[in-house]
């Protein structure tokens, strides 16, 4: 049973929802009864289609009858080469001068050889609870840096979406139908082997994520393993079967909630550290799965983020949607 009111479309909240989902322009949209609006919409769609066709034809004409003077272009290309060489040479010179001022590698008085590394190695396990010092380092001491990396992944996925996501319309339908023109569809050999391998790959990815603080690995590597498993499943069984457990809705929820929880965990660290309070989360015995405080959870969030990003890249490049 739907809990929406019958006149839901004309309410204020529905307009906000449409605006958030990018369907309507919030300030311009004034609903005037359903039937009229629909008529208007269909008319507008026809008009825009005709205009698109005209535009395409004009563009083709323009490309075909290309009679612009080419002298300017030639001169521009010559100048471009000269300027590019000059810029590159200047940059190289500047970098070389900078390198020549660096201290010798391995010198005892270098700024890199300070007490920080010693502290990481000697007190890392005691302070973070992680047996794997690298994980303790990047998720606890240098958590801010890792948060930036996770945001870079988020921003990269958003940029690819801006460029490649096909929102609505005929193109979407055709792209979804032709997402693999030459690739073998429903290959029984690939499907059987994927049935064996995909669970194993998922298990391995989860193992790498959960053991991030005990052994080499962690969120980034485990997440990419899980993403590879998802891609394998898609290439064996197609998008229709994948969308039963991983579609755009799941993607949105998983990705954004992982990022938010990650930021919450790190905010706790920052707040406690900046005010000089003690860390009240028990670290447990080093070596157990449930130990090292928040590092385990941060690993899980990072892994979710990375897996979602990998799969999103693949799906976006392949059919322009999730």
């Amino acid at each position: 049973m739907s809990r929406k009111r019958s006149d839901y479309r004309s309410t204020f909240y529905s307009r906000i929802e449409n605006f958030v989902n990018g369907r309507e322009e919030f300030l311009l949209y004034r609903p005037t009864g359903r039937t009229e609006a629909e008529k208007l919409e269909s008319l507008e769609a026809e008009l825009t289609e005709a205009a698109d066709l005209l535009d395409k034809r004009e563009e083709q004409q323009r490309i075909q009858d290309h009679t612009e003077p080419r002298d300017f272009l030639k001169r521009f290309h010559k100048l471009y080469g000269v300027v590019a060489t000059l810029v590159c040479l200047t940059m190289m010179m500047l970098l070389m001068i900078t390198v020549s001022w660096l201290p010798r590698f391995g010198n005892a008085s270098n700024p890199a050889n300070n007490e920080v590394i010693k502290r990481y190695i000697e007190k890392g396990q005691e302070e973070t609870g992680a047996v794997n010092i690298v994980t303790g380092l990047i998720l606890n001491y240098r958590g801010f840096d890792t948060m930036g990396e996770t945001h870079v992944l988020f921003v990269a996925a958003s940029c690819v979406m801006i460029l490649l996501l096909i929102a609505e319309g005929k193109e979407k339908v055709s792209r979804y139908a032709n997402d693999r023109q030459l690739e073998p569809k429903n290959d029984i050999i690939v499907q059987k082997v994927a049935g064996f391998l995909v669970p194993a790959v998922f298990m391995f990815g989860i193992y790498v994520i959960l053991n991030g603080h005990l052994s080499p690995g962690g969120g980034f590597s485990g997440g990419s393993v899980i993403g590879a498993g998802l891609i394998m499943y898609v290439s064996a069984f197609g998008f229709k079967k994948t969308e039963r457990f991983f579609n755009e809705h799941v993607y949105k929820i998983a990705k954004i909630s992982a990022l938010c929880f990650y930021i919450c965990c790190l905010s706790y660290y920052f707040y406690m550290g900046a005010h000089g309070y003690d860390n009240h989360i028990p670290l447990g015995t080093p070596g157990n799965i449930i130990s090292s405080g928040l590092i385990l959870f941060i690993n899980i969030f990072v892994g979710t983020e990375v897996a979602c990003t990998m799969y999103a890249f693949y799906a976006l490049f392949r059919k322009g949607g999730l």
Binding site: E183, P184, D187, I189, V190, V193, L197, S235
Partner: peptide, 8 residues
């Protein structure tokens, strides 16, 4: 894995 990828 390698046999299957070659097959595809």
């Amino acid at each position: 894995t390698s046999a299957i990828s070659s097959h595809v």
